[in-house]
Design a protein around this nucleic acid. Sequence first.
DNA 1: CCTACCTCTGACATGTTGTCCAACTTACTG
DNA 2: CAGTAAGTTGGACAACATGTCAGAGGTAGG
Lengths: 171, 171
Amino acid sequence: MRVLGAHPDAKVEQVAAAAGVTRQTVYAHYPSRQSLVAAVVDRITAEAVAALDTADVDSGTATAALLRWLDVTWRLLDRFPLLLHPSVAAIDQGDSDRQHAVVVERLARLIGHGQAAGEFDGTLDPAWLVSATIALGHAAGGEVAAGRMTTVRAAAVLRRSILRLYGAREP
Amino acid sequence: MRVLGAHPDAKVEQVAAAAGVTRQTVYAHYPSRQSLVAAVVDRITAEAVAALDTADVDSGTATAALLRWLDVTWRLLDRFPLLLHPSVAAIDQGDSDRQHAVVVERLARLIGHGQAAGEFDGTLDPAWLVSATIALGHAAGGEVAAGRMTTVRAAAVLRRSILRLYGAREP
DNA sequence: CCTACCTCTGACATGTTGTCCAACTTACTG
DNA sequence: CAGTAAGTTGGACAACATGTCAGAGGTAGG
């Protein structure tokens, strides 16, 4: 998690070295590099699920829940550049019931509630809003990575953009 | 353009074969695979610039111009999956004055006009709006590529999302 | 003790990128 | 017509990362 999470381009050799084992030992546990990356992503998303569980308990308005969701995921996006990396995109294509899906599904549910309650505009496809949210999150992360924005500024801009996209009133 | 534009993962060998030459000949013209991709992207964006030139002449409102910009770029995104591919993202990092920048710069100018004229909300950073627009465009393209949306539906959803993000009235 | 289980060393196959060179074709030039 | 310059080709080779395989060694638990 430390090596791949921070340096998505790290070679299997480097991951093994950081773990104090050899390359072959890594392959003994994970059949391919991709499955190793998948495992790391799974662990990260497990953290996300846990954080969402503690944050989402007494769900107030959908808007407030959305902001908490953004807060949790943004923090992880900041800690693990791997999540921004293309190699991750190739993973959740086939394996649909991956951990990753859980986090996304929470957002989808949240959007459903918000639209039903009239907090969000209901004329935009929830599935699209999920994709759009992730895309904007990646874009915001990219701005930070490129040094064009600070983390806090990017988070603020992201919040405003998402709310606007959803047709929610800014609190 | 045909091979790489449609199949971003194509090997240099395949590009060479399609051109009726050998791999070495390709390397005689382009020092690396990346520079070859960059050249393809340059040609595509040259088309984009030409299309924008013919479409942008008598610029009406900024909103109308924005929709034309979206129309032109969306068409190219649809024709050349390469533009959605990660390998392209690695290009325009270093070479800032690439053709690609011209298309982006047009959007930035357009946003400036719209904000100055009060058509768009002026409280969001134009540079961010540019990044966000591209991100949403890629997301919409991804939906089409994944078979979750038709091209026309994705284009419509993209338009609405962008307008909403910009704080523009939907025409 | 001894048997699984894990790990290590070392070697090997594969595929792609990028480089080098000698030989060949083609077209232009004096 | 001869010669030259440029582009192309075939073949070979290095580098590098991913995977695979077999044999030797170590360690904990029965």
